[in-house]
Amino acid sequence: MRDLLLAPLPLTFEALFVFLLVASLVGRALARRRPEDATIRNANDRIRSWWAISVILAITFAFGTTATILLFALVSFWCLREFLSLTPTRLADHYALAAAFYLFLPLQFALLLWPWPGVFVIAIPVYGFLALPALSLVFGETDDFLQRVAKIQWALMLTVYALSHAPALLLLRFDDYPAGPFGLLAFLLLVTQGSDVAQYLAGKRFGRTPLAPRISPNKTREGLLYGGGAATVLGGALHGLTPFGFWGALAMAAVLVAAGALGGLVLSAVKRSLGAKDWGTMIEGHGGMLDRMDSLAFSAPLLFHLANYFWAV
């Protein structure tokens, strides 16, 4: 029992829950002192959401690979729904959209369970790329054809293809890797989401210089520097979850932080071009599901490919 609790992955979850407990207690104390403060209320909403997300992840991990793939398929579904709800689409795209939801999304995650691992990497970029514009022909509508086709393909690449690389980490095999495949997924989630949280906190505390005022007015250089730095150090500290060793984990965490920050900015720009502030209202304090997943969509494929290229057997 003692060995089980001290293995890298369970220990990480225990540390996470202790951290959330401290955060909840601090948040409650702050809310009591300043009950009217909107920032504190939002922070407490976010802490509650993190509790829910962490508990759901811990339970799903315990159920194993298939359950985890299914969970990410669901997350992907909600992200795609949020993305396409904000994106203007037309009746003429109805069957292409139906194929994106009912064919390519389930196919992508089912292929993770397929014994031939190469297929999930090409399903959407090759078969989706060719099939979806063909389906957009059904109504014979040529107005804005290229824009319509591009929107659907981009949405699918981002919310389904890119996000599916998070559970795809479970397929990689490494020599001398005691934490097991779930360790690497936990590493990805903790560093990417930890970076978002640390940047938010550092931005609130030290933020002065806007990073990209027209794209994302709340992000600051100080937030990115200190928060991203903290997340990189966190990644180094979590090297026990990875097969990379300390310096490898530190470097990989830096890549994930950079990719995640760019993901957040790109998705902010998309959101703004569509005239919205949040992708949805699903997660208390955060906005929509895609507001939480934007950085992960950019960091997950990078971790998958770099780990696969340099370390996997």
Partner: peptide
């Protein structure tokens, strides 16, 4: 709002739209 996008007139399969 947007129900007409989820299941427009003339098609029989709804698509997921919030």
């Amino acid at each position: 709002d947007d129900v007409g996008r989820a299941l427009p007139k003339g098609v029989s399969i709804p698509i997921p739209v919030s």
